[in-house]
Simulated assay, not measured.
Amino acid sequence: MAHNSPFDRSVYTRANERVGCTAPTYRWEDTVGLSRRCLPGLQNHKLHTVTDELGIDFFNHHDAFADAVACAEIVQVLSQRAGHAGFDELWPSQPTAGAVRTARRTNRTRPPSGFAGRSRV
């Protein structure tokens, strides 16, 4: 689970490819899509906007662990609000990541925008 999980999935897949591995098949869920469905009136669905709306305490945004905790808390709050017993009720059944087609860029010589100063995957 991640906020904008298609991005995370593409990085994960690409990193595995770079080292010659096939990425394991996992279930990927996205709190951006979830927040769009459950909180349609928000100005935007950025992670900090969603956490503010749900009353989730401030966290160190863009820290991987803090972002993961924030996503878990989003799921917990939205699940409780909807009266669901658990995680699986928030998302319709989906195939695992291995069965989902992801866009791939080839022959990339520069990292995508937003990666300035970070090592490439």
Rank of each mutant, 00 (worst) to 15 (best):
residue 1 M to L: 14
residue 1 M to C: 12
residue 2 A to I: 05
residue 3 H to C: 05
residue 6 P to M: 01
residue 7 F to P: 00
residue 8 D to L: 04
residue 8 D to F: 04
residue 9 R to C: 06
residue 11 V to C: 14
residue 12 Y to Q: 06
residue 16 N to F: 07
residue 17 E to D: 10
residue 18 R to Y: 13
residue 18 R to L: 15
residue 18 R to T: 11
residue 20 G to I: 11
residue 22 T to F: 11
residue 23 A to G: 09
residue 24 P to W: 05
residue 25 T to M: 12
residue 26 Y to I: 07
residue 32 V to T: 07
residue 32 V to Q: 02
residue 34 L to H: 01
residue 35 S to F: 00
residue 35 S to H: 01
residue 35 S to P: 04
residue 38 C to K: 09
residue 38 C to M: 12
residue 38 C to R: 10
residue 41 G to S: 14
residue 41 G to V: 08
residue 41 G to L: 09
residue 41 G to E: 12
residue 42 L to G: 03
residue 47 L to T: 00
residue 47 L to D: 00
residue 47 L to S: 01
residue 51 T to V: 13
residue 51 T to E: 06
residue 51 T to A: 07
residue 54 L to C: 04
residue 54 L to V: 06
residue 55 G to N: 10
residue 55 G to C: 07
residue 55 G to L: 08
residue 56 I to H: 03
residue 56 I to S: 06
residue 56 I to P: 02
residue 58 F to Q: 15
residue 59 F to G: 10
residue 59 F to Q: 10
residue 60 N to S: 14
residue 60 N to F: 13
residue 65 F to V: 15
residue 66 A to K: 07
residue 67 D to I: 03
residue 68 A to M: 05
residue 68 A to G: 05
residue 70 A to D: 01
residue 70 A to G: 03
residue 71 C to I: 01
residue 73 E to S: 07
residue 73 E to H: 11
residue 73 E to D: 15
residue 74 I to V: 07
residue 75 V to F: 00
residue 75 V to N: 00
residue 75 V to T: 00
residue 76 Q to W: 12
residue 76 Q to N: 14
residue 80 Q to D: 09
residue 81 R to L: 02
residue 82 A to K: 15
residue 84 H to M: 09
residue 86 G to Q: 06
residue 89 E to W: 02
residue 89 E to Y: 03
residue 90 L to F: 01
residue 90 L to D: 00
residue 91 W to S: 01
residue 93 S to A: 07
residue 93 S to I: 02
residue 94 Q to K: 08
residue 95 P to Q: 05
residue 95 P to Y: 05
residue 96 T to W: 04
residue 97 A to V: 05
residue 100 V to I: 10
residue 100 V to E: 02
residue 100 V to T: 10
residue 101 R to T: 08
residue 102 T to C: 03
residue 103 A to N: 09
residue 106 T to K: 13
residue 107 N to G: 10
residue 108 R to A: 14
residue 108 R to N: 12
residue 108 R to P: 09
residue 109 T to P: 06
residue 110 R to F: 09
residue 111 P to V: 07
residue 113 S to H: 11
residue 115 F to M: 15
residue 116 A to K: 14
residue 116 A to F: 14
residue 117 G to N: 10
residue 121 V to L: 15
